[in-house]
Design a protein around this nucleic acid. Sequence first.
RNA 1: GCGGUUGUGGUCUAGUGGUUAGGACGGUAGCUUCCCAAGCUACCUACCCGGGUUCGAAUCCCGGCAACCGCACCA
Length: 503
Amino acid sequence: MKSEELYALLRRRGFLWPSAEIYGAAAGLYDYGPLGHAFKRRIEGAWASWFLGLSEDYYRIEPAEILPEAVVRASGHLENFTDPEVTCARCHSSFRAETVLEKVRPAGVDGLSPAEIGKLIEENQVRCPSCGERALELPRPFNLMFGLDWGAAGKERAYLAPETAQASYLAFHRMWDVGRHALPLGIAVIGHAYRNEIAPRQVLFRMRSFTQAELQIFFDPTHFPLPFEEVADESLPVLRASDRANGLSAPRAVTARELVGEGGLPEFYVYHLAQELRFFRDVLGVPPERIRLLEKSDAERAFYNRLQFDVEVSVESLGGFREIGALHYRGDYDLTRHGTATGKELAVTPTNRPRLVPHVLELTFGVDRALWALADLGLEMEGERTLWRLPAHLAPVPVAVFPLLAKPHGEAARALVTTLRAEGIEAQLDDSGTIGKRYARMDEVGTPVCVTVDGETVDPAHPNHGTVTVRARDSKLQERVAIPALPARLARVGRFPRPRAER
RNA sequence: GCGGUUGUGGUCUAGUGGUUAGGACGGUAGCUUCCCAAGCUACCUACCCGGGUUCGAAUCCCGGCAACCGCACCA
């Protein structure tokens, strides 16, 4: 399906639409409608359930989304999230100053003022990489963070968080104090991140405000006990940086065990890579051949990341593999930076272990991107019929209830909805149009189960009195089920998978 | 940010200076005892925004906004 077709369908069904639309809309901002919101909550719930399920010591918090300037200075965002850009006066192309100057100054331009960069361009007679003219203008800084005036005097600055991770690092000392002084300690946040993208594109893939789900695992690199055997035989579709350097673009299937052995990756890292794969494949229902674990090279990843694999999903509407999640081994960079900046001691002494500054393993997940990818992957056009094959536990509407005929069966259908809701099943009534249209509507939004009340249900003389038809989305098959048996039958529909068998 | 293309009901679209702005799908209400988008009737909803030209603009011009494609960017 093409991107525009998919977007039209999502708009038509009220999943999402452009923000501030009656004012002509704002690029890079989208509002979620009822179905989009419900779907997104399901994805977030599935994520939380899976990754918080990895350990008893992983917790979810809800931090503020505004960061004082001192925080982003220490984190490096103030400096590194700013790219001086130069524009060619003749052909109007623009480039990062670093790119233009890479021949004359291979060390990069970090820390140079716009005037100093301009001087370098002038002295070295640098030409425009596009048209070859000497027409490059003075560079202007472009920071991807949204700055805020802070306080009445407006002298201090603050920023909308460009990633949710920073708040977790700031919360670490509190979490340590209130916890049981053991590593690993996990802090999960599902929240918004804000970036002033120059050119928002592709709807949910380049937004100015978006939702991240991130788990920061603080751990002792010399001691990270894990049930590695549980994932050792898992086959991972990895594309190593070294393979890419040799021109490979297809992933190779490598077991977790091999990735640690011959692959030379730390066990704790591979374990979480495997859990990422399982989450995308088994929880989100992404077909395995559409998942790729792509290792970022030294040049591609941020300098503080010692290891980085992106979890990529092949999305037809966006023309191929796109990053939805990532696994970053950030070492002790973050806690050390914040410790140095504040003068606070962020080293800890775990029970029966030597004192250390914990290392961080970051699991990050783009909720909006996942939403788009799942819609893209699941929607099938079968002639007139649009069918969304969505895992039942992710469906925005888990169960729909219809009266076969609105008048004679409407009351019984409404009563059934009430009964199901009392059992904690989010059933939704639809009594408009005809039965076939209702089935079609629900197929289009991925509702796995439709329940229909008919004449036999309400006829005390009929053998099928008190039973309803239960219709499965993918097969369209129906069967009659007694109403009292229905809650048990439907309870499984909304339950999120967990990473390990409950103990 | 740059260049190109485009902007008509919820969706897809017809209309290229004077139209009651047409259709299809959709939605709502009713009829039809009706389990997979059936039929019939009625109704609902639109010219992206702001200027200009003109007796008259959805239509032509300028500016803005937005989308798509390409370039650049995406620590």
